[in-house]
Design a protein around this nucleic acid. Structure first.
Length: 105
DNA sequence: TTGCTGACTTGGC
DNA sequence: AGCCAAGCCAGCA
């Protein structure tokens, strides 16, 4: 089957499953996408998101294993933090409480 | 095909 | 809690 180039699509689908007010780690997304060790690849897939796709994919609900926001090229982490906060996600010294807002917890 | 890079994760100090 | 090193995956020159 052609799963070789469906990686992006799988990642996007998983990210869309993240409920509003909750967050998932790159590793969590990678696991649900079928690639347990593909956390980095997940970042690559989200990086490929264009403005149109960004409107359909809640990319801001994806954070690192520490519950923090990974710095990305072209956009300040502050933007993502603000979006999550608008959904009711509480921040604790720059990091999210995954035990409370973590997807699957 | 080989090698480097990157929005990562985990284990050890 | 924070820093360093190794491992894994996909894309690009």
């Amino acid at each position: 089957m052609n799963e070789r180039r469906g990686f992006f699509r799988r990642v996007y689908r998983v990210v869309r499953l993240i409920p509003r007010g909750q967050v998932a780690t790159y590793g969590q997304v990678a696991l649900l996408a079928g690639t347990p060790r593909g956390a980095r690849a997940v970042g690559w897939a989200l990086r490929a998101l264009d403005e149109a796709a960004a409107g359909t994919v809640p990319w801001h609900r994806v954070v690192n294993a520490s519950g923090g926001i990974s710095p990305r090229p072209g956009l300040s982490p502050e933007v993502q933090r603000r979006r999550l906060r608008a959904e009711g996600v509480r921040f604790r010294k720059g990091h999210v409480d995954l035990g409370r807002h973590g997807f699957g917890s």
